[in-house]
Design a protein around this nucleic acid. Structure first.
Length: 937
RNA sequence: GCCUUGGUGGCGGAACUGGUAGACGCGCUGGAUUCAAAAUCCAGUUCUGGCAACAGAGUGUGGGUUCGAUUCCCACCCAAGGUACCA
């Protein structure tokens, strides 16, 4: 008989809810611990067994830390703005808020049945006005800030205005748009209000500018760089094209260096840090200015190899480079124009797909070498990207493979500037194994020395300087969608203006259609009530826009990552109506101590959240610069798909062994129709989908065998395992422990329902320790030494394992312990009481029940976590393996208090030693305490 | 190509700073209980040979260091994830 998990789980879940057992207190004297999960998007499909993996791990840590005496914050919420609800709204006209609320209700039911110790009183939903009010508030703070490079931090825009008032921007050190004009204080003062506002957009951390964006026509919106994968949209896989549009952006590039160096201070997985480093893409090198023969203009290039300056044999400009038109000679005009047009007509995707084809064209113009004054032909090539560096490169064929290939293809000279290095077949792109030659004052130097020297000389003649470039681009922040936070901006004669803070939240208006307007404006363009009455400080009907002081409101909404960039701070003081969180609460909870979530957010959410946190740290709103001290990526739980093979063009299905040379298509079938021997239940298959009723089946040994494959869990692959079903059959405690037992949490692993019986059996065995027959029975006698040893060894091991998040081995340790106690017949209170608390983070329901049966009234969350008594772990005698030259030959029992010398003497005195030696001399004896004795002979 | 992580039985996976490799679970085999089944319990299960005691091999491959290597070093192979005309 299985233990009554169903009634137990229901009982304690309602007990916890009723007593607010897990509500955290922000004013505790106890040390704090903040465990956070990445909050889910509540999709319509509900949870499958893969989703709760990370939640279970963090819940174990949360419960453990509570028992360890910490004040634990373990909240949960919903990232509830998002595309699926909006697309459902487009199809059905149902408001996304309704869909979202229904999905959240379902999520909550599923989460509750797993017994998580979330503090639901702090729940957040990014789509609720009392939450997104503060997202909008933060946007306005970003809008009202600029980055001061001299102080390396964000500052309020008013302080910049004071500086401009006093001295213009001539000596200003800031991170601003490349096209920002130089202005003096006089010029600034002479600016009209509109001119001032336009100028300030060059500095604001949230700014409106015409930028080249990733436009996805299918989705009808722009996408951030991290939402574009291989030239298509991450969601849906639709084509993405480059397009110039006026868009809101976040000046995250100002924080490139701090985002990079901050990684050194946080305990995050190395692969994830590496992804962020690559995304930020720091390159150290120099900028070099080349004069153009017969022109006023100069070409500026960025290079990571300034040491190769004397190896330059041509220059290459991106086809979009602004100088292309001006410098092209009449003779080359036609060719150049044709080339520029062809490249412009090609999508990003085509350009990427076709990187092996070398294309380019000569402009007819020449640049002049900064030292030798040599004439260098200027070419155009689409291997140079307009968006990186300066959009121009100095081509050094002997030191860069792409330059080499380009030179070979167009028969341009290849000058060798490396001594004793062959560059006839390929470029020498490594920075090692060579010294510089044929390079005037650089001859004989190595790469590092030469780089340093050439930068010194370039600086001296004013033709270059050391420079650092980052790949990180500013993040586009506008989305042409309905179901997102409205950007709290109105337009005064085309100039963007912040809504006053008191006017927040700026509520989403009702619209009739969730599609873009016929003119192509975002869905908010359909709203009739979407204008700002500045005088009365309220949103009014669009028809009033012509009136004095009524202005159009911004139609774009914020991207999905806006709300998730700061939610961890909101949990600290979720109910606060007057601030995003009180400073006292923020200071008390500080940073997240353990953050659990997927690595797919590496260059999205996790980068943007770090950026926002740094800005609000600079502005003094939060006290820590990195929001999460430690992060763990849980691996995916994969589904075990099943296929049957259909003979091509027929309705005949073959058992997998009969496929042979037949041409077949694999067809997914529902995994519930396939048993553990991979045989398909054909009758059930016919019931499942009608078209199988007319099918014929070719069997082997009377069975239709399916092919198995491990894939991502998804509805369309019919391989989803639902946690509800597992809870029904085995209970939540079994599911929790089994998911942990499956393997290390960082690792991806396939789900296999068959294995769950092991954990289920364990919990039943544990239950039976407390019961004889069906009667609760425990003994008040003193436990045996063996039982105490088993208990304390388990306490020691489990404590270590939880601290290291090695939860699979902790489950194993419990199994060993219970097996041992069962075979000892040990059911003493002194053993079972601590064991119950020890297990409670993993299997909270059964432990609560047993704890109550043990006669305690209060919840076990208040019971102290047991400490291992080391005295029980030390054995007085121990069996040592004795090995000869590393091979174990026999064992001997020793008193552990004996010193190594006497152990050695005993080994040598044993007659088996003499047998093993067979006359050979003993060279030395190695005694490894508690492990092994090795005799070297 | 580059970066990161990893490679251990039929399977998921253990092994602390180098110290008896394969814990724990699944599966499989045999047994007990049962009229029978489910459930439960007991024993066995890396491979090869042997009834057995036992012997030999064995942590992707090849070398090295060491009394002793899954662990450290060198070279290579493979897999997963990330990323790419980034100058």
């Amino acid at each position: 008989m299985a233990y009554p998990f169903q009634s137990i789980e229901k009982k304690w879940q309602s007990y916890w809810a009723k007593n607010q057992t897990f509500a955290a207190d922000s004013t505790s004297e106890k040390p704090k611990y903040y465990v956070l999960d990445m909050f889910p998007y509540p999709s319509g499909a509900g949870l499958h067994v893969g989703h709760p993996l990370g939640y279970i791990a963090s819940d174990i840590v949360a419960r453990y830390k509570r028992n360890k005496g910490y004040n634990v914050l373990h909240p949960q919420g919903y990232d509830s703005f998002g595309l699926p609800a909006e697309q459902y709204a487009i199809q059905t006209g149902q408001h996304p808020a309704i869909t979202t609320a229904a999905n959240i209700k379902r999520y909550r039911e599923q989460l509750d049945q797993l017994g998580f110790s979330f503090d639901w009183s702090r729940e957040v939903r990014t789509s609720e006005p009392d939450y997104y009010k503060w997202t909008q508030w933060m946007f306005l703070k970003l809008f009202a800030s600029w980055f001061d490079t001299s102080q390396n931090k964000a500052r309020p825009i008013e302080e910049l205005m004071t500086i401009l008032e006093q001295s213009g921007n001539l000596n200003l050190q800031t991170h601003c748009d490349a096209s920002t004009p130089e202005i003096s204080a006089d010029q600034w003062r002479a600016f009209s209000e509109k001119e001032k506002q336009t100028h300030l957009l060059n500095y604001r951390l949230a700014y409106l500018a015409e930028t080249e964006v990733n436009w996805c026509p299918e989705l009808g919106t722009v996408l951030a760089n991290d939402e574009v994968v291989n030239g298509v949209s991450e969601r849906g896989g639709y084509a993405v094209v480059r397009k110039k549009m006026t868009q809101w952006s976040m000046r995250i590039s100002a924080y490139a260096e701090r985002l990079l160096s901050g990684l050194e201070t946080i305990d995050w997985p190395e692969p994830l840090k590496e992804m962020q480093r690559n995304w930020i893409g720091k390159s150290v090198g120099a900028s070099v200015r080349f004069d153009i023969d017969g022109h006023q203009d100069i070409i500026e290039v960025f290079t990571t190899r300034p040491d190769t300056l004397f190896g330059v044999s041509f220059m290459t400009l991106a086809p979009e480079h602004p100088l292309v038109e001006q410098i092209t000679t009449d003779a080359q005009k036609q060719d150049v124009q044709a080339y520029v047009e062809t490249t412009a007509s090609r999508s990003e995707r085509e350009r990427m797909a076709d990187v092996k084809n070398i294309t380019g064209v000569f402009t007819g113009a020449y640049a002049l070498h900064p030292f030798t004054e040599e004439k260098i032909p200027i070419w155009i090539g689409d291997y140079v990207l307009a968006g990186y560096g300066t959009g121009a490169v100095m081509a050094v064929p002997c030191g860069d493979q792409r330059d080499f290939d380009f030179a070979k293809h167009f028969d341009l000279p290849i000058k060798n500037i490396f001594s004793d290095t062959d560059v006839s077949e390929a470029a020498h792109s490594e920075k090692t194994n060579t010294t510089i030659a044929n390079s005037d004052f650089l001859n004989g130097l190595d790469v590092a020395q030469a780089s340093k020297e050439v930068i010194r000389q370039l600086t001296a003649i004013g033709k270059g300087a050391a420079q650092i470039t980052y790949r990180l681009r500013d993040a586009v922040f506008s989305r042409q969608r309905y179901w997102g936070e409205p950007i709290p901006i109105y337009f005064d004669n085309g100039t963007p203006r912040a809504l006053p803070i008191e006017a927040l939240p700026l509520h989403l208006p009702e619209v009739e259609k969730y599609l873009p307007t016929p003119e192509g404006a975002p869905p908010l363009g359909n709203a009739t009530e979407w204008a700002w009455d500045a005088q009365h400080q309220k949103v009014v009907s669009n028809t009033e826009i012509d009136h004095k002081r009524v202005f159009p409101l911004e139609l774009n909404t914020m991207p999905g990552w806006a709300g998730s960039s700061w939610y961890f701070n909101r949990y600290m003081d979720a109910g606060n109506a007057s601030q995003f969180a009180d400073k006292t609460a923020l200071d008390y909870w500080g940073a997240v101590d353990l953050y659990v979530g997927g690595s797919e957010h590496a260059t999205g959410h996790l980068l943007y959240a770090r950026f926002w946190q740094k800005v609000f740290f600079d502005l003094g709103y939060v006290g820590v610069e990195e929001f999460a001290k430690k992060l763990v990526n849980q691996g995916m739980i994969l589904g075990n798909s099943a296929f049957v093979y259909r003979k091509s063009g027929t309705q005949t299905f073959l058992s997998r062994g009969l496929v042979g040379d037949n041409s077949v298509e694999p067809i997914h079938v529902d995994i519930s129709l396939v048993d553990s021997s991979d045989a398909v239940d054909i009758e059930a298959l016919k019931q499942w989908q009608p078209h199988f009723q007319e099918a014929t089946f070719e069997l082997e040994d009377g069975k239709l065998l399916a092919k198995r494959e491990v894939e991502k869990m998804s509805k369309s692959k019919y391989n989803v395992v639902n946690p509800d079903d597992i809870c029904q059959t085995y209970g939540a405690d079994t599911l929790r422990m089994y998911e942990m037992f499956l393997g290390p949490i960082e690792q991806a692993k396939p789900w296999n329902t068959a294995g769950i019986t092991g954990v289920f059996g364990f919990l039943n065995k544990f239950w039976r320790l407390f019961h004889s027959g069906d009667v609760f029975t425990i003994s008040d006698e003193s436990p045996s030494k063996e039982a105490l040893k088993a208990l304390h060894g388990t306490i020691e091991k489990v404590t270590q394992d939880i601290e290291q998040l090695s939860l699979n081995t902790a489950v194993s340790a419990f199994m060993i312990c219970v097996n041992e106690l069962t075979s000892l017949g040990s059911n003493q209170r002194e053993i079972l009481e601590p064991l119950t608390i020890l297990l409670s983070p993993f299997a909270p329901h059964i432990c609560e029940e047993l704890w109550a049966l043990l006669g305690h009234e209060s919840s076990i969350v208040e019971a102290p976590f047991p400490e291992a008594n080391k005295q029980y772990l030390i054995e007085s005698t121990k069996t040592y393996p004795i090995s000869f030259n590393g091979k174990v030959r026999f064992t001997l029992d020793f008193d552990l208090s004996a010193d190594p010398k006497s152990i050695e003497a005993m080994v040598l005195a044993d007659e088996r030693t003499q047998q093993q030696l067979a006359g050979k001399a003993v060279r030395k004896v190695i005694v490894v305490p508690n492990k092994i004795v090795n005799v070297v002979c």
